[in-house]
Design a protein around this nucleic acid. Structure first.
Lengths: 338, 338
DNA sequence: TGACCACATTGAATCGATTCATAACGCGTC
DNA sequence: GACGCGTTATGAATCGATTCAATGTGGTCA
């Protein structure tokens, strides 16, 4: 095996088939302009040499290509997995290809992938921003690359966005817990630099205020990592406290999963001793030891819609879509029938 | 906003800074060879023009880059999500970047992404093959691109691979059910063209044969899609049958999730009426309504190890690693204490 | 027979960054 | 002032596919 032989190029194919490079390129891109005989000859040469187009050269000449990038906060979160699938399905319908990356909620990683995508000449990027500012995204757009904010309302008119009303979601969950008679509610949340977290908190506080409660007194916020382990540490912290809340609202279902596990191990009954509400309504939410009340978001549609905007192109007017979340009540938050 | 202005190039920067293109390139790639004064001047020009390198041109000249591709069967399956994370962590340690794609178990999609990656000039690809043959992957390797088989033992010595012993996994699950006294076992499986499915079946049959049973009589195989809905349809089919098995082995935990849901709705108790075993031991397996017995695979390590082999390069001798799975027994397969 | 047209094919210019042989420069030494 | 050495900077050649004006080849029709 020759380790470092030059990749076979279009010129090699041309030589082999006894035609010019232009003709080979035509076979590849506009087969109808080439006579059947030569086309066959070229195709044979391609097969014999097992030639693969050099995408870099192709793209260098042709400009942008049919690839778009997506940067989500965390691919291992089922919420983003489903959003991604929605994007992908819409894109493949138009023969576009998707490159996905996970920022892990770190602005540096977001910036790094953004640059990588831009250097690769993607048509556009769909980004769940990690930070408060989107200036870096505006800069990308200035350079002619489409930008759609994913799961994030746009702070400026000119940038399209697809979001879900997280303030409403937070309020739905909290109001429900209030309706069940809870007066002290814990909120296992992520850092407020993550917009989704900040908004859901805002919603929770509004629901409390609307009910005539003092949010500062009634809501105990615990900041945790946004996965099952985060739920575990959050609950541990709560269990040690003197004044244990009777209800826990988790900022996503993974956290709720960890919370449920930890409560069960500690011998605390859900929902009898503690009511639990999650967020996202992931596949397994209904099937847990205690079926989980959760706030459902249109994950798939979120992605599909964003992809749709992306495909409209840079010239189309910006659009701003905000979906409404929906509370799905299950056993984890409702007192069991005796 | 100028919609279709040419991207600013290294020549623009050079002009602005009053230097040659070679110098700009040096600032970008070997800053130490440039005097501090000119470097500053060039950097200023880069900032003012908000210049972003054209990756295609860069790569066209330089050859391969530090990107590798991975093609898994289904990113929305938590098993593959975790494998991907393992890969990513290992790669970022060496400053490599990962592009992930999902073949959805379709050979055409696998081939399409493979070509896309190759055209983009990736250093290598890590693939969970969809079909029986890996000839297309050998061809890719002939062209100087690293290939590592993911979750698939290599049929040839020359190609590195990382796998888990699925025959053993199938046997572990089945033996366990036999030990619990079950004599008629259903297997909700995928098509046999998927190696993992074929192997787990093989393992199940061996376990039966070892126990002196006739696999054809004792095992009822139902072919289903590999997600929660698949579990649902599979169980529906079984419930309609006259001779209902007393145990169900599901080829993965998503299928088991759907199975559990459907059994519960049909009023069939797990494990009292039907024992259930899954595969993968995903995060939520322990927290389901009935905690799920499952076969655990070292997902993260699987990915990390594959990435490791990839980084060793094409010249290093091929390696073949086969991890051993492990049965995690929980309530779904063990008769409840009275 | 010659004019004209449709169709096929050619080959050189082009995209933008990198590389490297060469030139320019600064500075100390004899 | 000539020489040599080390440091910087230059610019043309290069990577491989695409594009398009120009050329070539028949074929049809007056």
């Amino acid at each position: 095996m020759s380790p470092r032989t030059r990749r076979t190029s279009i010129a090699d194919v041309a030589r082999r088939a006894g035609v010019s490079v232009g003709t080979v390129s035509n076979v590849l891109n506009r087969p109808d302009r080439v006579s059947p005989t030569t086309r066959e000859r070229v195709e044979a040469a391609i097969a014999e040499l097992s030639f693969v187009r050099n995408g870099s050269a192709r793209q260098l000449r042709a400009g942008r290509i049919t690839t778009v990038g997506a940067i989500v906060l965390d691919i291992s979160n089922p919420f983003f997995t489903d959003v991604t699938r929605g994007i992908e399905e819409r894109l493949t319908a138009d023969d576009y290809t998707l490159m996905v990356a996970s920022s892990d909620r770190e602005p540096e990683r977001e910036a790094r992938y953004l640059r990588l995508f831009e250097e690769h000449g993607v048509r556009g990027v769909m980004v769940v921003p990690t930070g408060e500012s989107i200036d870096h995204l505006l800069a990308v757009r200035e350079r002619g690359i489409g930008v759609v904010l994913l799961d994030h309302p746009s702070p400026v008119d000119s940038v399209s966005s697809v979001a879900v009303d997280d303030v409403l979601g937070g309020a739905l969950a909290t109001r429900h817990l209030l309706d069940q008679g809870h007066t002290r509610i814990a909120f296992l949340n992520g850092t407020h630099s993550i917009r989704q977290c900040a908004d859901r908190l805002e919603g929770a506080r509004r629901a409390l205020a609307d009910a005539g409660r003092d949010p500062d007194a009634a809501l105990v916020e615990v900041t945790v990592p946004l996965d099952a382990n985060g739920g575990e540490t959050g609950i541990r912290a709560l269990l040690e406290a003197d004044d244990r809340p009777t209800a826990v609202f988790c900022v996503n279902d993974l956290v709720a999963l960890g919370a449920l596990r930890t409560l069960r191990r500690a011998g605390v009954s859900v929902p009898d001793d503690v009511a639990l509400v999650g967020y996202d309504d992931v596949t397994f939410a209904a099937e847990l030891a205690t079926p989980l009340t959760s706030v459902r978001q249109p994950r798939h549609e979120l992605g599909a819609r964003a992809a749709d905007m992306m495909l409209r192109g840079t010239d189309a007017p910006a659009e701003h879509v905000v979906f409404k979340p929906e509370l799905v009540v299950r056993e984890s938050s409702t007192t069991r029938a005796p």
